[in-house]
Structures are given as C-alpha cells and as structure tokens.
Amino acid sequence: MARIIGGIGTSHVPTIGVAFDKGRHEDPDWQPLFKGYEPVAKWLAEKKPDVLFFCFNDHATTFFFDHYPTFALGVSDEYRIADEGMGLRPIPRLKGHAKLARHIAKSLVNEEFDLTLFQDLPLDHGLHSPLTMMWPTKPDWPGAVIPLVVNVLQQPLPTPRRCYKLGKAIGRAIRSYPDDLKVAMVGTGGLSHQMIGERAGFNDEKWDREFLDLIERDPERLAAMSIEDFMRLGGNEGAEVIMWLIMRGALDERVKKLHQNYYLPMTTAMAVALFE
C-alpha cells in the first residue's frame, strides 16, 4: 500500500526560483534561504519519496479568469514548464504519476470532492520555485509530482476548513492505493505578504511564527479561522497559506516538526518546514 512519509510546508515566491537559476547559493543576501532548504533536501534524498503531492496555486498563468477552477488536480504523466512572461526556466519537464493521480481523483469524487481534472497543461512557479530548492534537477527529477491547483486569487476562495478536510480525504485516497509507493505532501504559499493597495509591503513576523507553531500543533484552530482572518493577519496574498492546511490534513494528527527556517528579506516572508 502507498504510505505518506511526511510533509513539507514552503513558500513559493518566484524570486526563489530566480535566485536558484542565477546560482545565488553563496550570495550573502540569499544564503540564509538556501541554507534553510538544505535539511529538507537531505531528508528527501534519504527518504526517496516516489511522489511529491504538491498543493499550490497557479498565478493566472495556466488558468485564466474565463474559467478559474477552485480545486484542479493534474492527472498526466508529464507537465511542461509554463512561460510566465520571461521565457522558460532551464529545468526539465516535470514527471507526473498518472496512475496514482487517477486513483486519487476517483477516491475524492467518491468522497464528494468534485474536482476539476486536467491533463497536458504547463505549470508555473507555484510548484517549481520551491521544488528546485529541494529536489535535484540533474540528470533528471528523482521522482514524480502530482499537482493540486487551488484558487487563492479570485474571491470567493475555498474556506480553510474545506482545505483541511480535502487534505484528510487526499490522505485517505493515497493510503488506499494498492501499490507500494512513498508519498510526501507539500503545501505551498505565504507566509505574510501583501502585494497590492495601500498596505502593499505588509508583513507580520509574529503572526507567521504563530502560524508555524499552530500548523504543527493545532491545525484545527487554523481550520476554524475565516479567509478574512488570514487576510487580516497575513496580508491579502498571505491568505494563500490555507494550502498548507491541505498538506497538514493528509498527515497524521500528531506530527513532529523536524526543521523550520524563516527568512524575510523583501516583500514576502519565506518559510520552509518539515514534518514527519
């Protein structure tokens, strides 16, 4: 049977991918970020998950507002890298796991989560800006990804409670897959930031630290909050941390946080945390 071996929460700021592509590993402005991902990369290299289940959002790149799904699951064996206005990142195409993804789709629909299902679409930095910090790109990706794309752009957004429940259902779906596979959950987004309006540039490290504590210890409390709470505490765009609740929902009730890093250089608090 498939197993969930742990979970990762991570920011997906586009500049993380740019810093990686430009080789800023030793640049003093970026080194604290790269160092922060090293224990996660080491854990992945040791545990060798077959699949990373990625909860992230598209940034009006692949999906446009003429048809913007709330939850969309990728069921392909391969995904291209999306052009976001600057050409393509120099990284290989992503490998998918169509068989497990189809099983999860069936299982979720049976649990009354009627998702949008997509194939053969390119994916943007929401998935691969953190991925390149954790998983080697050469000679090729060491495993497959299953993308779950969440609407955190166009209100109304799914509630934090819905995200947490969906995570629990994804956990049950993965654990009911008959083949022996190791799966790690990844929830992306945040932490505090606001890109628009008069409050642009807003951050709150105190709330971010509390969030990092609650996601480990008391996700139920986060799930009971409203989207408006998340927007007030973490900024308009910071409310996307509800995607960490999907990751957390798929893990066991009690988890141990093995590692955490927090870095707030510019407009978005960049965090990564590892749970087992």
């Binding site: 500049t15 810093a19 402005d29 970026w30 540039g201 250089p265 510019m266 407009t267």
Partner: peptide, 8 residues
Amino acid sequence: TRRVPGAR
C-alpha cells in the same frame, strides 16, 4: 523599509 534590500 526592507531587511535585505539586495535580495531582489
């Protein structure tokens, strides 16, 4: 107003 103005 930023902590690391060079990180961009």
